[in-house]
Design a protein around this nucleic acid. Sequence first.
DNA 1: ATTCCTAACAAAAACGTTTTTGCATGTCAA
DNA 2: TTGACATGCAAAAACGTTTTTGTTAGGAAT
Lengths: 345, 345
Amino acid sequence: MATARRRIGIKDVAAAAGVSTTTVSHALSGKGRLPEATRESIAEIAAELGYRPNTSARNLVAGKTGLLGITVSASPDAPFGLGDFDYFIQLLSAATGAAVEGGQALVVEGAALGANAFSRVDIDGAIVIDPVSDDPLLASLDARGIPIVTTGRRDDGSDSGTPRHWIDNDHREATLSILDHLVEHGARRIGLVSTPPVTSYTRDAVAGYRSWCEATDQKPLVAVAGGPINEGSGFIGAAELLDGPDPPDAIYATLDQLALGVLLAARARSIAVPEELMVAGCTDSHGSAWAAPPLTAVALNPERIGRAAVAMLSSLIEGREPEVNPVMVPTAILPRQSTARNGPP
Amino acid sequence: MATARRRIGIKDVAAAAGVSTTTVSHALSGKGRLPEATRESIAEIAAELGYRPNTSARNLVAGKTGLLGITVSASPDAPFGLGDFDYFIQLLSAATGAAVEGGQALVVEGAALGANAFSRVDIDGAIVIDPVSDDPLLASLDARGIPIVTTGRRDDGSDSGTPRHWIDNDHREATLSILDHLVEHGARRIGLVSTPPVTSYTRDAVAGYRSWCEATDQKPLVAVAGGPINEGSGFIGAAELLDGPDPPDAIYATLDQLALGVLLAARARSIAVPEELMVAGCTDSHGSAWAAPPLTAVALNPERIGRAAVAMLSSLIEGREPEVNPVMVPTAILPRQSTARNGPP
DNA sequence: ATTCCTAACAAAAACGTTTTTGCATGTCAA
DNA sequence: TTGACATGCAAAAACGTTTTTGTTAGGAAT
């Protein structure tokens, strides 16, 4: 019954409209010189017939693949999966949504691939999340001439002349404001637990913390959690501070996973949170929200970051310089019980 | 300095090898009739030149888009995001990985799109996760003649004659074994908290539970948690059982989120877990692992499901009937503290 | 010696678009 | 009245493959 009907092509539209394929193409793309009336009538016929242009054919003449790539940069010392962090999930979801809405296909590559990412599938451009210092992936993409948008700034020693495009939060500012938040709630001595400074957000947070220490005339109290990025590392980092000669009464961790580890370290020592120790982390997550007690977090707006990255990359691929670059996405503090020492959060 | 060099095409290879493009194509694809020696030498030259076939051109002649789609089916009454469930994330990661390894591009569509999913981006085939009854998306894909692999079985009343392809766990068996696990650990009265039976896994779990009740001569004790799938619904469902005339001393929830809600309900009533109430949930997640106490879970192996789905869909697209269909993926019980009433989990 | 077959390759068509070039026709200015 | 120029459209080339259809040379069979 259901006649296996051919897909409607530009030729069918042309035939139906009594014009050439050239004219249809021009009418639909807005190029060429055609009277508005012709354009409209052709567009109408195309819509009636349910014409959908063949993407492969388009890509072929455009010399594009029609694919955007997204991956997260990873340091070889600290491997992790895309699903390990709520932040990535939210960013990816948003990016995926934005791409699909724009009729673009976005392919996600796992983190563990290093420079081999995007070697199997050809892409028109790439979004690289949180680039670590001198990631060979970036060099490889640069060499292939593939446009890149990073989420967080890239740092490869010599600024190689190529213009940079990125989305970022103001992590320095965010750090200052969470420190203020802690002080407001009664903190007297604030320690920092961070990952090694391989990403711009870590460097920014540490820089913010140090400048705050200088301004308030305190000695920085920093633990760098090496190894895998998880609760265990946070636990160890927190232990270093809590068991040290100058234990803090508040800790800010540059990642939610670390903050959860700090919470565990406090529990192991029967230190009451937030009464004896306030804890806050960067990046909100299910884990932070459901922790005991719930963790105050710096929200980074990964949804906006993801959408902005796709938009910026699309511009680049079309050969337009993006209107705004870099894009700065605002942060916000989500006050929860873990910092509610004086009254409600 | 870096000469912006053209991309190597099949013509370049042909020229370098002193043969026609036809011969190169045949040599590389294994088709046509060529002596092995010629094939090899051409392959070598192609590799030397770094030849990579243009995907768009290939797709154009093949009449394909080169894209696989994946989305999760959602009931309009219970909307959720892709990132809401660890299960999806793990499945998606695995599917993405499998696709990329196979040189395929997989595009992820959000859940909230309903039948509109895949209307913006053309795909060669689709993976639909946990299809809900009579999802219009499936009908729409069927109508467009797009091959479908489902994760979990589809149920659309009349079996419409079209052959079905799916990956699944044996949820009935899994349910029986977790019930056994609970009994072994001292449960006397086991209740079930489930979502409405719109997916095959829910129907299977409920069916398993009911047959177990029948076999053990008990009256089923079931709470159906409507509305959004989250801890709140689990809380309400658990309340219904715990505050009822026949309160259970163990609850199995068909989703980890519900199980977390059960935990909260127990805490709200000062019911000790696992001493007074054992709790287990289907699907492992970060939340389950980090809950207080950690939740015993039925692991579903989403990684294997995701990879199998991509493999099966690829077969279908190439026009081959998959070797195994359906694919059944084994489950396992992850014993944790929430069911450790008698001795260690 | 002719015919027939096969091996080894090449020429050309096809896929569905976009883009470039070309060709009428009409309008306006000189 | 003749060029110059704009307008409205079509023909044809191009994108990089795969696939279909030849073509040639050589060997075997008659």
